[in-house]
Write a protein that binds this DNA or RNA. Structure first.
Length: 285
RNA sequence: GGGCGCGUCGCAUAGCGGCAAUUGCUGUAGGCUGUAAACCUACCGUCCGUAAGGACUACGGGGGUUCGAGUCCCUCCGCGCCCA
């Protein structure tokens, strides 16, 4: 029954594993186009720090969802999802094969598993009010309003609790269950690297050489530190222009968290090199 | 040569007689319903046990006081500062 579903290839893996490169190669080989699934590469003016692919590296393959907003504006997962789906449609229209490529697990999941997130916009004032309460109070409130959701939520995560309440208060309805019926016939390819920490170190060194500090400073100047470090972008590893070791550390920790996300998905085909990937894709198509 | 101070689990830090020892970082594992490189949780001396719990080894080395010692005393070693 999944036969009718359109095919979608997803390339994922920890940061610095070589996703972009692999995606381009596969796109060249199989007539594909690439949709980026990276929460930060979405933004303009953040190139070095996000490890964004360059024009040259794209080798003529079209990339979607890069540079679609300035750091002034916060792009949310819903917006991302809409745009990505639109891009995928467009690619099908051209009779090409879409390749979703990125390291943001949540974003990938939103597309491949078709997560439907309640359309409730963040309400700053409401959040401020809720912020004053303790975690316990928030949880109790949630329990009252939506016992079901209270069971599944992380009861100690304030941010999540606030959001859940926000949805409840705004919609006055219980939070709908996460839908997970995919609209695509998915192929997940994960890049496995034994020496990922080494690769990360190398990459950070390269970023520094390419002028990372300059890029971050410019962002600070233009958009303000809070915006850059916390609000939209989360360039946290560059806090106060951290020493290189700290950036590396932060990146290593991040890549670990990425892996715990990916590990949950049993459908990922973990590969070591291009040839392996090529073979899998060929069979899939 | 004289005076003082310090040495605690990878690093940093608490502890001033009841301690397997505080807290932060690191580390390990995990979670994630419009902030996702964000945010959150658990574990982190060794061994046995599913657990409760138990056993052993630990606060620079050695000795002592005490029912009991990172904690008090003596001494040795190492480090730091000040006066000469």
């Amino acid at each position: 029954m999944s036969i009718q579903k359109p095919k979608l290839i997803t390339i994922l893996g920890p940061t610095a594993s070589g996703k972009s490169d692999l995606a381009v190669k596969l796109a060249k080989e199989f007539n594909g186009e690439i949709i980026s699934a990276d929460s930060r590469q979405i933004y303009k003016e953040m190139n070095i720090g996000t490890g964004k692919i360059t024009k040259k590296e794209m080798k003529g393959i079209k990339h979607y969802l890069l540079d679609i907003a300035t750091p002034k504006k916060q792009i949310t997962i819903t917006e991302f999802k809409e745009k990505a789906e639109k891009a995928i449609k467009e690619i099908y229209k051209k009779n090409k094969i879409p390749i979703l490529c990125g390291g943001t697990g949540f974003y990938i999941q939103a597309i491949t598993e078709n997560i439907i997130i309640p359309r409730v916009k963040p309400d700053k004032n409401l959040r401020k009010e809720l912020e004053k309460k303790t975690i316990k109070q928030l949880f109790e409130q949630l329990k009252k309003l939506d016992p079901k959701r209270s069971k599944s939520i992380d009861s100690k995560n304030k941010r999540r609790l606030i959001r859940a309440l926000e949805i409840l208060i705004k919609t006055k309805k219980p939070i709908p269950k996460l839908k997970k019926d995919s609209q695509f016939n998915n192929l997940y390819i994960g890049i496995k690297k034994e020496n990922i920490n080494e690769l990360i170190n190398k990459r950070v060194d390269k970023m520094i050489k390419q002028g990372l500090k300059k890029e971050v400073k410019a962002l600070f100047k233009k958009y303000g530190k809070t915006q850059v470090l916390k609000n939209t972008i989360g360039y946290q590893e560059f806090q106060e222009l951290n020493p290189i070791d700290k950036i590396k550390l932060h990146t290593r920790q991040f890549s670990k968290r990425q892996m715990t996300w990916f590990k949950k998905n049993p459908d990922i085909r973990w590969i070591k090199d291009y040839n392996e990937a090529k073979k899998i894709v060929k069979d899939f198509l």
